[in-house]
């Protein structure tokens, strides 16, 4: 019945091109020996990469982004792991309500969360900076981690944990000997993806960080100056390649040794 549909296939390929060409342009022009991104291409060069490597402000922004990303990914994965266990293993009263509340930051416009955090943070008399940025990133990443971890936890049988209890393990032993090894790939995937999200996040950082720049803010600042553009392209190309690799690894991890045997849906996300 569904053997072939060339019209749809052609459409899919065109859409695919629409999806990828804009992203691919940045790496292509990052090797182009010209200030402006215009056709025809002029010639091959590494000088923008060289310029990028030697920018000290970029280094500082990079370090800030890594710091925020690491803290945010570890905290949000940990918080989501506990919550995923609660949602998949226990009958939670107000299940829908709690679940909805935790997932809400995923849909609320980021600018509203940013503005609300500015109001409370400055209202309490604190200085804006990387701390509120990190808090907002934890808030923003937790729903993603929760969806990844819940789909893994649902994928494996509740009886396995009961079997461990039945064989004499306490809650702690059961977690370390059974639950953790089985969810480990998803935990790593969750760490990687939340790191990528935090690393690429712009709005919250832009509103909440004041003078401490993260990498996306640094790029934002450079985009206005045509002369700086090529080295933003170089930086962008590197970021695209690295984050794509991390994401591919995390996809692969999520399907690795899936205990239910069937391929996990990335349907959650």
């Amino acid at each position: 019945m569904y053997k072939k549909n060339n019209t749809l296939l052609l459409y899919s390929i065109i859409y695919f091109a629409f999806l990828y060409i804009p992203v691919m342009l940045l790496p292509i022009f990052s090797f182009n020996d010209a200030i402006h991104m215009v056709f025809p291409l002029k010639g091959f060069t590494f000088k923008w990469y060289d310029q990028m490597i030697h920018s000290s402000r970029l280094h500082k922004a990079l370090m800030n982004s890594i710091k925020v990303g690491l803290v945010a990914s570890v905290f949000s994965t940990f918080i989501a792991l506990l919550a995923a266990k609660a949602f998949t293993r226990y009958k939670v009263r107000f299940h829908q309500l709690s679940y909805g509340a935790i997932l809400l930051p995923f849909v609320i416009p980021e600018i509203i969360i940013a503005v609300a955090l500015i109001v409370i943070w400055t209202g309490m008399g604190f200085q804006l900076g990387l701390v509120p940025v990190t808090i907002s990133h934890i808030l923003f990443c937790t729903p993603f981690c929760l969806l990844i971890l819940i789909s893994r936890m649902e994928g494996f049988d509740k009886n396995l944990e009961e079997a461990a209890m039945d064989l004499g393990e306490n809650a702690w032993g059961t977690f370390w000997r059974v639950t953790f090894p089985l969810v480990l790939p998803a935990v790593i995937a969750s760490l990687l993806l939340s790191f990528v999200i935090s690393f690429d996040e712009f709005i919250l950082a832009f509103f909440l960080s004041s003078s401490d720049q993260t990498l996306p803010m640094y790029m934002w600042g450079q985009m206005r100056f045509p002369k700086k553009l090529p080295h933003v392209l170089a930086l962008g190309a590197v970021i695209i390649v690295v984050t794509s690799l991390l994401v591919i690894i995390s996809y692969w991890l999520r399907n690795l040794g899936n205990p239910s045997g069937k391929k996990s849906k990335i349907g959650g996300i």
Binding site: N159, E162, A163, G168, N170
Partner: peptide, 20 residues
């Protein structure tokens, strides 16, 4: 007494063999 401290053991309906 919780399950882990009881002198009982169980064979589960789906066997619950640890896959890892």
């Amino acid at each position: 007494i919780p399950a882990n401290l009881r002198p009982t053991n169980m064979v589960f309906q789906n066997y619950a063999i640890f896959p890892h």
